[in-house]
Computed example of a mutant assay.
Amino acid sequence: MKLQLGTADPYTQDPLNDFINALTISGATENTIRIYSIAIKDFLDYVRKDPREVTVSDVNNWIMNILRRDTRDKNNDVNDKRRKKTVTARLYTIAVIRFLKWLGKDVRPTIPRARRREVRALTEEQVNVLMNSLRKTRDKLIVSLLLDTGLRAKELLSVTVSDINLNNRSIIVRNTKNGEARVVFFTEKTAKLLSAYLQRNNLKPEDKLFKITYHALYRKLKRIGKKLGIDLRPHVLRHTFATNAIRKGVQLPIVQRLLGHKDIRTTQIYTHLVNEDVEQIYKKILG
């Protein structure tokens, strides 16, 4: 749903604050408000002028400044860093354009184009090797849940004990990317792991299931994958869930709902991997 932000008071002395208030009133998600706040503040700190007086050149120069910044991210390779900066620049630019439009300023800068990260999914053999390598119950449970549900890592780390229903093997995911709660499901095998984990840790209903930060989880998976020669990141497990679901015949709208995608076109990227399977099988058998 498109946000109805109205227009700015022409006499406002604090346009950023007024814009954030408009976002909040319109029902924007916390994540949207956070990104817009960071982006617009970064832009205003860079241009150091009344936003109603900025030019296209001001915005384009700011975008170039973002693209030249050193991310100092040791977790990603050079291509990932470059892509991450481009994605950030694109998101920030869209936020600033919307802010300026709300102010009545029609500025049309060049919007950076972010290339989609290559979708990688684990093979069945890699999944088996991975699961057999895990010794700690918590590590095995985290990987099992990500493979079973397709949850984003941050969504999984927001789950509380009260969100889990062991009887029907489901989880209510409340802290989602698009702000809309959804239900995901897990297998009997994972349910046994989860039951043992809950009993051992004596967690209360309001407790987080996993008391670990996103960055700690990311680093842990990267270390595990490195030992096995696997590119292992939270999103690789999400890709693996989606790809396996489609391979097994789950209809695309269902996969979309389980993944929490607003647009089914986002879900359709996984059909490319399945099509590659079809092509390989065809060439192997039929030549």
Rank of each mutant, 00 (worst) to 15 (best):
L147K: 11
D80A: 12
A95M: 11
P109R: 12
A181H: 07
T86Y: 13
N132I: 00
L103D: 03
N201K: 13
V173L: 13
I171E: 07
V183H: 08
P109G: 08
E125L: 04
G104E: 08
V119G: 07
I94L: 14
A181I: 13
S170K: 08
M131R: 03
K204H: 08
T160F: 07
N178I: 04
L134I: 11
R117C: 03
T190D: 02
N167E: 09
N168Q: 08
N79V: 10
L194R: 12
Q126F: 07
V107N: 14
N168S: 10
I171F: 04
L157R: 00
T176D: 09
T176E: 06
N128E: 04
D77P: 06
I171A: 02
D148V: 01
R169L: 07
R90G: 03
E118P: 02
L203P: 02
A114L: 06
N79D: 14
N168H: 13
G150N: 11
E118W: 07
Q199Y: 12
L198Q: 15
N167T: 10
S162M: 07
A153G: 00
L91N: 08
K85H: 07
L157G: 01
S144M: 10
N165H: 10
A196D: 13
N79P: 02
E118K: 02
L156M: 09
V78R: 10
A121N: 04
L122D: 07
I94C: 15
L130D: 02
V184N: 07
F99G: 00
F99A: 00
N168I: 12
L145I: 13
V78T: 07
R135T: 12
L134Q: 14
T176P: 10
L194Q: 10
I97P: 11
Q199K: 14
A114G: 08
E124Q: 05
R135F: 03
S170W: 12
R174N: 09
K204R: 11
A191L: 15
N132A: 04
R200T: 15
S162P: 06
L130I: 03
F185N: 04
M131A: 05
N165V: 02
L166I: 14
R152S: 00
T93Y: 14
K177V: 08
T160N: 14
L146Q: 12
V87W: 10
K177I: 01
F99T: 00
R82V: 09
I142V: 15
L130A: 09
V161F: 14
V143I: 11
T190F: 01
K105M: 09
K189Y: 05
G150F: 15
K101H: 15
S170M: 15
I111Q: 13
R120L: 04
R113Q: 11
P205D: 04
N128G: 01
D148M: 00
R169S: 03
